[in-house]
């Protein structure tokens, strides 16, 4: 693993302190103060990149991509539905991984990332459900159909709701973080099982209607904007996650001297 850490420290040498020979950068990342400072520097660039990529993908997908032979123009909802669903799923894994890092290395910042990731993921899941329902109307003639993918998304929303509810149920930050990290890990083990069983259940009950998304058979002109949108959503997710994490840092570290210095510096300007 040391070659990996060396690679990382070479790649990010610019942002890392000089003495970071091995995994020190990893621990440095765990310092809320360090993270707050650095993320403030990353944010403008990341936001700009997210904005540009999203704008490009949206205009490309909505105005320039050809329409689908079967579904007509309503298929263009794919350019927001699929990236949102994609991020909703990866968001849960990101949350669980952050929780696991917190449990294993007892890193404060990763619990904060985990807490920040939950509402963002839930909102993206809602977006995926909403766009899926709106897409369903012209395609199936109904806003809600118990389609496998939509059902899985709904269950994912419940899983997010559980993690958030547990997070708010405890007064002690430590208990809230650890308990919801464990729940997120249990959920991660379950998500593939849930998705597979819902898929199986769907094939049992419903003959295959029009599948909303069939990415591999998509034409390149349709697929490229989708890819751009997915990248854009990832960048956007990064921006949102950093913003929410920074707030969590401020909330938990408001008594520390570095936050006070920060406020003083702001007031001095």
């Amino acid at each position: 693993m040391s070659w990996l850490s060396k690679l990382f420290s070479k790649l990010f040498a610019k942002w890392l302190p000089n003495e970071s020979s091995s995994w020190q950068w990893f621990y440095r990342l765990g310092s809320p103060k360090w993270f707050y400072r650095r993320s403030g520097q990353w944010l403008p660039w990341l936001s700009l990149a997210a904005l540009l990529v999203l704008a490009t993908g949206l205009v490309w997908g909505l105005a320039f991509a050809p329409e689908d032979a079967k579904q007509g123009n309503s298929f263009r909802i794919i350019y927001i539905h699929v990236p949102a669903a994609f991020l909703a799923q990866s968001g849960y894994f990101i949350m669980a991984i952050a929780g696991a890092i917190g449990l294993i290395w007892k890193m404060k910042i990763s619990y904060m990332v985990m807490k920040a990731a939950a509402p963002i993921g839930a909102v993206l899941t809602f977006v995926a459900l909403f766009t899926g329902a709106v897409w369903g109307k012209p395609t199936w003639g109904a806003y809600w159909v118990w389609d496998a993918r939509i059902t899985s998304m709904l269950i994912l929303l419940f899983l997010y709701a559980g993690v958030m509810a547990l997070q708010y149920a405890y007064h002690s930050i430590d208990a809230a973080s650890k308990a919801s990290a464990i729940l997120a890990l249990v959920g991660t083990v379950n998500i593939p099982i849930i998705n597979k069983s819902v898929d199986w259940w769907y094939t049992l009950h419903q003959p295959a209607t029009i599948k909303l998304t069939s990415a591999p058979s998509m034409h390149m002109d349709m697929f490229m904007p989708l890819l751009v949108m997915i990248v854009g959503f990832y960048l956007f997710y990064g921006v949102a996650l950093i913003l929410h994490t920074r707030n969590e840092i401020l909330r938990r570290e408001r008594k520390t001297s570095w936050v006070r210095e920060l406020v003083n510096a702001k007031a001095g300007l």
């Binding site: 269950i155 419940f158 559980g162 547990l166 379950n190 849930i194 069983s197």
Partner: peptide, 22 residues
């Protein structure tokens, strides 16, 4: 996960129900 919470019962069903689907 909810043992020390006063209103754990309702929360418990919220946490566990999605896991029961399979």
């Amino acid at each position: 996960l909810t043992v020390s919470l006063r209103k754990g019962g309702l929360l418990l069903s919220l946490l566990v129900m999605p896991l029961y689907m399979p």
